[in-house]
């Protein structure tokens, strides 16, 4: 079953959960007017569903995210690193436009904090 957890807006990403494919897609931009108002329910829901999966894959395709959203992504990484102890190995695909150095560099930064999370940088062609 595919569920849309959040609709895309100008400042917030679309979040789609495909349970059978064990995939979560976070696509768009993230610079919400109310950072916690948008992200807190999503963080709780995503961390809850991800624990039901064996090999969850999270695909980030963010063309822009602000510094507040960086903290949210770092908090995701912290939680997903811990899941390895429960036998849940999270994979992250960080999708970026090859012409967008900023998003690529941000992905490299995040990858450096991942020991258990399998973090992949994926150029979109």
């Amino acid at each position: 079953m595919v569920q849309k957890f959040a609709q895309k807006t100008i400042k917030t990403p679309e979040i789609i959960f495909d349970e059978s494919a064990e995939t979560i897609e976070i696509k768009g931009r993230s610079y919400p007017e109310d950072l916690n108002g948008f992200w807190q329910p999503q963080v709780e829901r995503l961390n809850e569903v991800i624990q039901r999966l064996r090999a969850p894959k999270v695909k980030f395709e963010l063309s822009y995210h602000n510094s507040g959203s960086t903290r949210i992504i770092m908090n995701f990484i912290r939680e997903w690193e811990k899941l390895a102890g429960n036998g849940i190995k999270v994979s992250v695909d960080w999708l970026f436009d090859p012409e967008d150095e900023q998003t690529e560099e941000q992905g490299i930064d995040y990858s450096e904090f991942c020991k258990e999370v399998n973090f992949n940088l994926v150029a979109i062609h």
Binding site: S67, G68, R71, R78
Partner: peptide, 26 residues
């Protein structure tokens, strides 16, 4: 990077200065 790590270690961190560092970095 250290501020990013700080916000990862402390979920309640507001990442003080991360926005200004982001501007300076860019």
């Amino acid at each position: 990077k250290a501020k990013m790590f700080e916000s990862m270690e402390d979920p309640n961190s507001r990442g003080a200065g991360l926005g200004y560092l982001d501007i300076a970095k860019k």
